[in-house]
């Protein structure tokens, strides 16, 4: 189907969302809670765009690009005055929540906000509660973290914060996906620590670099159906081995 984004005619498939199509066509829409690996959730409200249609009798509406399914003849504006204004409003609030986040500061500046017009949160962290970490953890199949509580007390945490209830496999997906860098971990030669727990490390048989935690590799093995022996080498060494094997094949 055909639709128009910022005056550019683009092609899309049924079931796609505006953001997806825009990104594919090089049209930039800011988004914090979006990641192609997980289902969109519309949590950060930053990807607001204005939509209209020739058949809508002049009706226009503001929607989140990440959650709005495309349709034939849709006319999308991603950067007009109204859109910029509503995004500035969202950023004003995000900046009040996370005044110390560099990412939020930079985005806010792009929308003309140097300082939040609200009272900044006392003792702020960097969490914007976008839920990416929770969604990726669920996707990986660990479901070790969730949002706990509600309203102003809502946080991302592990249940009870006690070890016997730990489902965390130490894969670091949450820390990697976190847009603001709130989720942190430490790792030295022997140990990886995340969510208040220490994990042992497994090393590549060939080159000796750390490839993950035993819990993580066991989980991958169970999910993929691949034998544990597959997870004894790092990706690089495994690829090198495969390359050598292919090199021996003569045509």
């Amino acid at each position: 189907m055909q639709l128009s984004i910022d005056g550019k005619s683009v092609t899309a498939q049924t079931g796609e969302y505006i953001l997806q199509v825009a990104q594919r066509n090089g049209i930039e829409i800011p988004a914090l809670c979006h990641h192609p690996a997980v289902e969109p959730s519309g949590a950060c409200r930053l990807c607001m765009v204005e939509i209209t249609h020739a058949d809508w009798g002049g009706w226009k509406g503001l929607v989140t690009a990440c959650l709005y399914p495309v349709q034939e003849g849709l006319i999308v504006s991603t950067a007009n005055e109204k859109v910029r204004k509503v995004r500035a409003g969202v950023l004003d609030l995000l900046l009040a929540r996370c005044p110390e986040s560099e990412l939020i500061q930079n985005l806010s500046r792009q929308y003309g906000i140097e300082k939040t017009s609200f009272i900044p949160r006392p003792e702020p962290d960097l969490c914007i509660l976008c839920g990416l970490c929770v969604r990726i953890c669920e996707k990986i199949g660990a479901s070790a973290i969730s949002t706990i509580g509600r309203g102003i007390d809502k946080i991302v945490s592990v249940p009870y914060e006690t070890e016997e209830n730990y489902a965390c496999i130490g894969c670091l997906a949450c820390a990697t996906i976190c847009p603001t860098g709130e989720i942190t971990f430490t790792q030295d030669e022997q140990t990886r620590s995340i969510w208040g727990r220490n994990f042992e490390l497994v090393y590549c048989e060939d080159c000796g670099i750390a490839i993950g935690t035993p819990e993580q590799l066991k989980h991958y093995s169970e999910r993929s159906g691949l034998d544990m022996s597959y997870f004894t080498k790092c990706d690089r060494c495994r690829n090198r081995e495969a390359a050598a094997r292919f090199a021996r094949i003569t045509f």
């Binding site: 669920e138 070790a144 969730s146 489902a167």
Partner: peptide, 13 residues
């Protein structure tokens, strides 16, 4: 159901 999810629901309401 994951424990984290149960805990999330239990603390939400």
């Amino acid at each position: 159901v994951p424990k984290a999810k149960v805990f999330g629901v239990a603390t939400f309401y």
